[in-house]
Design a protein around this nucleic acid. Structure first.
Lengths: 177, 177
DNA sequence: ATTATCATGTAACCAGTTACATGATTAT
DNA sequence: ATAATCATGTAACTGGTTACATGATAAT
C-alpha cells in the first residue's frame, strides 16, 4: 500500500484537510496517483491513530471548520524509511490494452471508437500537462533543485507518459485504417 | 473489473486450464495484465457458474488431469458487449513516481538507488520485448491482420511503454547527477 | 424555505494478494 | 520413501470503490 505514503508526501509539501487533499489528488499529484475523499478520510484516520499525522481544527470565514493535518516526527520517519525501500516494478494493467488485443472477438469498429475516445482524452491530458509546464517552469529545469526539481521531473514523466499513449493509440488506429 | 474479460480474450485465443492461463499471464499477455493462479481459479469458477466458460477434463500422460476451459456462446456475447463499452482512462498509479517526488523528504541517495534498480528492471523488460518482436515479427507489421496484427500492436505498446520508463528514469538520474 | 457548496464521514461491497492445503505424477 | 513438479483450490486479509449519511455555511 502506498496511499499512506502519497499522503505523507502531499502533507510534507503542504499541510491540508481531507478535502484539500482530495482536490489536490484530482489535480497535480493525482495525475500520478488518484484517490477519492472517502479513501483519504479512512487512511487519514488510520494514520492519526498510528501517530503519523496530527489534526488541528481550523475555523474558516464563510465555510465550515476543517481539520488540517500535518506530519508528526513519527510520520516523517515512516516516510523516510519507505522512501529507501525498493519498489517492485508493477505490470501496466490496462483495460484498453486488453480490448485492443481482443478486438477481433467483437465489433472491431466499436473497439476503434473506444480507442479514439481514449486517444482524445490523452490529448487533453497532454495539453493540460504542457500548460502546467509552461506556467510553472517557463525556463525549463534550469535553476531547479530539491523538491522543485523533483516536482518538475515528475511532471516531465506525466508528459512522456501521455506522449507515449498518444503515439501508441495513433499507431494502432493507423494500422487499422 | 476486467480479469474476467482478459481471461475471455486469452481463452478465445486458445482454450486452457487455470495453470496454463497463470503461466501465459506470467508471459506474453501478462506484460500488460498480471494475475496469480489463485485469482484465476476464483474468477474461472465464477465464470463457469455464469455460463461464460465450460470445462472439459483432459487426462495427460505423465501429469495429473487438468480442466481445460473454453468460451461458451454466452461468454462470447459477454466479451463482445464489453469490448464495445467505453473504458475510462485510468491514472497511472506508481509508487516510484511518489518516491521520486518525495525524495527531498528522505535520503536522496537511497531514492536514487531505488530508481536505478527500477531502471535496470525496465531495461531487462525492454530487451525481452524486443527479442519477442524480433522472434515473432521479423518482418515488422507487414502482412499482419486481425488477431496477429492486434497482438503485434500490443507488443509495440509494451516496447513504447518500457522505452518511456527508461527515458524518464534516465532523465531523473541525470538531473540529480 | 430551498438549493448549492464545503466538509467529514460510515457501510457494504469487490478485486486482488498472501498464506496455506491437498492430491496426482514422476524422478531419484 | 522422498523430493520435485503439476494441478486445483480455500481462507483470511487489504486496498479501493460505490452508495449513502450528516451537518455547516452561503446565496437566492
Amino acid at each position: 500500500m502506498a496511499l499512506e505514503h502519497a499522503l505523507l508526501v502531499a502533507l510534507r509539501e503542504q499541510p491540508a484537510s481531507g478535502l484539500d487533499l482530495a482536490r489536490r489528488f484530482g489535480r497535480s499529484i493525482g495525475f500520478f496517483w488518484s484517490a477519492t475523499h472517502q479513501q483519504i478520510y479512512k487512511v487519514l484516520g488510520r494514520m492519526e491513530s498510528d501517530g503519523w499525522v496530527e489534526a488541528t481544527e481550523v475555523s474558516q470565514s464563510g465555510k465550515p471548520d476543517k481539520k488540517v493535518y500535518d506530519v508528526t516526527p513519527a510520520g516523517r520517519a515512516a516516510l523516510a524509511a519507505w522512501l529507501a525501500e525498493p519498489t517492485p516494478t508493477h505490470a501496466l494493467r490496462s483495460d484498453l490494452a486488453v480490448k485492443m488485443r481482443g478486438a477481433s472477438f467483437g465489433d472491431r469498429e466499436a473497439v476503434l471508437d473506444v480507442v479514439r475516445a481514449n486517444l482524445a482524452d490523452h490529448h487533453v491530458r497532454l495539453d493540460h500537462y504542457r500548460q502546467l509546464m509552461k506556467r510553472d517552469y517557463p525556463d525549463g529545469s534550469g535553476a531547479l533543485a530539491g523538491l522543485d526539481l523533483d516536482q518538475y521531473l515528475v511532471l516531465r514523466g506525466g508528459i512522456l507518459t501521455e506522449e507515449t499513449w498518444v503515439a501508441w493509440l495513433t499507431e494502432y488506429l493507423e494500422a487499422h485504417a
